Amino acid sequence: MEGVPGDGDSAAAWLPLAKWKNDFSRAFQHYLDRSTPHSVGRWMGTLGVALIYVLRVYYLQGFYIISYGLGIYVLNLLIGFLSPKVDPELEVMDGASLPTRGSDEFRPFIRRLPEFKFWYSFTKAFCVAFVMTFFSVFDVPVFWPILLFYWIVLFVLTMKRQILHMIKYRYIPFSIGKQKYTEEVIPSSSSIED
């Protein structure tokens, strides 16, 4: 049995497209890898993209449903970023858990969503939302103050739950620089007598 005539022609036509896709993917990954240690620059670029999106929505006076969906997605990313990889409430401990007492051994905080993936997903979400603003089918007329109010209530309730979880299991999802230890000043016997 012979194949369908022209199969070789169609495969040859797709070959340059596949090569271009592969080259683009490799170059994109190369630049992503090079940007990894430059977190401040990455976040500044992302804030620029977010500002452009906000200005576009403001000047168009529309696309509030897209903005609401973007806000829910960003809130979901933020929860993943602030949560430990192993949640003490949900998963059976296999030896790797957060310390709950001062006498427990120090274990570093490992995020459920690492910073780089958080940044990448955050940036990609704003880029996708920006592209969606060019299609009028996504501009559903809504009363935007209700959406904003509902999102604020959702944000406050979610953050309250997350903060209570942090307090209950005594973890802080941020570390600012290297921790510095100082010597404790032990009062001398002469200062006690005075």
Results as ranks from 00 to 15, higher is better:
Q29F: 05
T100E: 15
V40G: 04
F109G: 08
I72N: 10
F106T: 00
D87M: 07
L47G: 07
I72A: 15
A27I: 08
I79D: 14
G95P: 02
P37D: 06
F28P: 00
S39M: 00
M93R: 04
V92I: 07
E105F: 04
E89N: 04
I65F: 09
G45K: 09
V49F: 14
F109Q: 10
S97T: 08
L55W: 03
G45F: 07
I52F: 13
P108D: 14
G41V: 02
E105Y: 05
L47N: 00
I52G: 12
Y68W: 13
W43G: 05
V86R: 11
Y59K: 09
R34G: 00
W43P: 00
L77F: 13
G80S: 00
E91A: 11
L77Y: 10
S39I: 03
L98K: 09
N76S: 04
Y59C: 09
E91I: 03
S67W: 13
F28V: 02
G48H: 01
E89L: 01
P37T: 02
S35R: 01
Q61W: 08
V54E: 06
F109D: 12
I110E: 11
L51M: 09
Y31G: 02
I79Y: 15
G71L: 06
L70N: 06
P108T: 02
R111M: 09
